[in-house]
């Protein structure tokens, strides 16, 4: 009977004690503990997430780097090819230009020469003509020194005409 017939005092003290313990812990201990637990769980989750993100970023970065390097290589090759082309083109152009220039120079030289030659010819002609006139003058003067000879000559000339 004793076992299932607890004293009123015990129930009273138990109720009081339990309420007190419940209140004190419920107000001052459990909220702090639950908050601490939650915070830590969150921080662990965040750390894990951050680590995962960092790993992903690293992978991304690495991929990016590789891509960048590949691109750079490609670009370098392209540049090299281009440069070679340009070089050849420049050489080609230079060569063409040089040829044209040379042609021009030769042409102009030829022109010059021609002009010089013509001038020389003209001058020579003039000189020759001058000389011819002078000689002719001198000859004529010599020839026509006396009147008799003049007459003779005129008459011979006339004779010639009349023959025609």
């Amino acid at each position: 009977m004793q076992l299932i017939n607890p004293g009123l005092g015990l129930i009273f003290w138990m109720t009081l004690t339990f309420l007190l313990v419940l209140w004190v812990l419920g107000k001052y201990a459990w909220p702090a503990i639950l908050k601490g637990l939650k915070e830590r769980e969150e921080s662990i989750q965040e750390s894990l997430d951050a680590a995962k993100k960092a790993r992903e970023q690293m992978a991304q970065l690495k991929a990016d780097n590789e891509k960048l390097i590949a691109e750079a290589k490609e670009e370098r090759d392209e540049i090299l090819v281009e440069a070679r082309k340009i070089k050849e083109k420049i050489i080609e152009e230079a060569r063409g230009k040089a040829a044209i220039e040379a042609d021009k120079i030769v042409e102009s030289a030829r022109e010059q020469i021609k002009l010089e030659k013509n001038a020389a010819i003209i001058e020579l002609k003039n000189i020759v003509a001058d000389y011819s006139i002078q000689i002719a003058e001198k000859i004529l003067r010599e020839e026509l020194k006396d009147k008799k000879k003049q007459k003779e000559y005129v008459s011979s000339l006339l004779k010639e005409f009349s023959l025609n």
């Binding site: 004293g7 009123l8 005092g9 015990l10």
Partner: peptide, 9 residues
């Protein structure tokens, strides 16, 4: 009322 501090209390 018996509010004794028994050994259980």
């Amino acid at each position: 009322y018996d509010l004794s501090i028994t050994k259980t209390v």
